[in-house]
């Protein structure tokens, strides 16, 4: 086993934004598919170093919001400023280059590959040796491979998945797959990590493990996290600030205690006659 990694070494690359400064600023974004309005005029920001939760009933536009942030959808209106740079449309692989990584609501791992290869694939963008060196294998390509393997092993240690390193992920139970997916996202060394329902379908113990990993990622690595989650207990305990969406509109935004007592939120969750 590797020695516990030094937290100072692992902090995300410095981008001139102090802890607590605005990392991501979404301004007046609207997204629609034909006549269906998924998101209507939503503004929200994510501060560097915080855990930000996005909650709301089914179909509220939470996942669409994440898809807008990481470039999978291009909003019809509004602007997105990430790390001080404004952008309108971009490809998802460019978002990765800027430091945004994410996990999925339904696990989206590479089923035929081992845990190790899945996490190594998360580092593809950081590996530079071209096909000529890859063909020869020995020399620079191998050195690069080992350098990245060391980083990946740190993540494997961190997530306590050493025993499944060589197992094809298709054969793993759901809870572990979720953990491997988190590992793959961490391998990208993101500045902003988007988690789409990291605890969906887990039992209490697995939820506790996952919560601990999320807090550790946030505190040890200094990664900013935006997450969607339905388990209110988890959301209220983990997050620094919560934004609530309903029918594509923002209905509340603030610290957990404030949001919990907001009448609009209670109405949206309990339902009121319209």
């Amino acid at each position: 086993m590797n020695p516990r990694p030094d937290p100072n070494e692992l902090t995300a690359p410095d981008d001139g934004i102090a802890r607590g400064g605005v990392l991501l600023d979404v301004k007046n974004v609207s997204l629609s598919f034909g006549g269906v309005k998924a998101i209507t005029d939503i503004s929200l920001n994510v501060l560097k170093g915080e855990i930000r939760a996005i909650i709301g009933p089914n179909g509220a536009g939470k996942t669409s919001m994440l898809n807008v942030i990481n470039g999978f959808y291009t909003p019809q209106e509004g602007t997105i400023i990430f790390r001080g740079k404004e952008r309108r449309s971009m490809k998802p692989h460019q978002a990765v280059g800027q430091g945004i990584a994410r996990t999925f609501q339904n696990v989206a791992l590479f089923k035929g590959m081992s845990t190790l290869d899945n996490i190594m694939a998360g580092r593809s963008v950081r590996m530079k040796r071209n096909i000529g060196w890859q063909m020869l294998w020995h020399g620079p390509a191998l050195r690069e491979e080992i350098e990245h393997r060391e980083k990946v092993e740190e993540i494997i240690d961190f997530l306590e998945i050493q025993h499944i390193r060589r197992t094809p992920v298709g054969k793993l139970p759901y809870g572990l797959q979720k953990r491997v997916e988190l590992g793959r996202a961490l391998a990208m060394e993101p500045t902003l990590l988007l988690l789409d329902e990291p605890m969906a379908g887990m039992n209490l113990e697995e939820k506790e493990d996952m919560s601990r990993f999320i807090i550790d990622v946030n505190q040890q690595r200094g990664t900013t996290i935006a997450l969607i989650e339905h388990d209110m207990g988890v959301v209220m305990d983990l997050s620094d600030r919560v934004v609530v969406l309903d029918y594509g509109k923002k209905i509340a935004d603030g610290p957990p205690d404030e949001v919990k007592n907001n009448q609009n939120v209670i109405d949206a969750y309990l339902g009121v006659p319209h």
Partner: peptide, 21 residues
């Protein structure tokens, strides 16, 4: 190596492959 992993990633789930960069 890296290129083989990228190919397999595209084979297994192309959307996820795009989102890991």
């Amino acid at each position: 190596g890296r290129i083989g992993r990228m190919w397999k990633a595209v084979r297994d789930m192309d959307i996820a492959a795009e989102l890991v960069g």
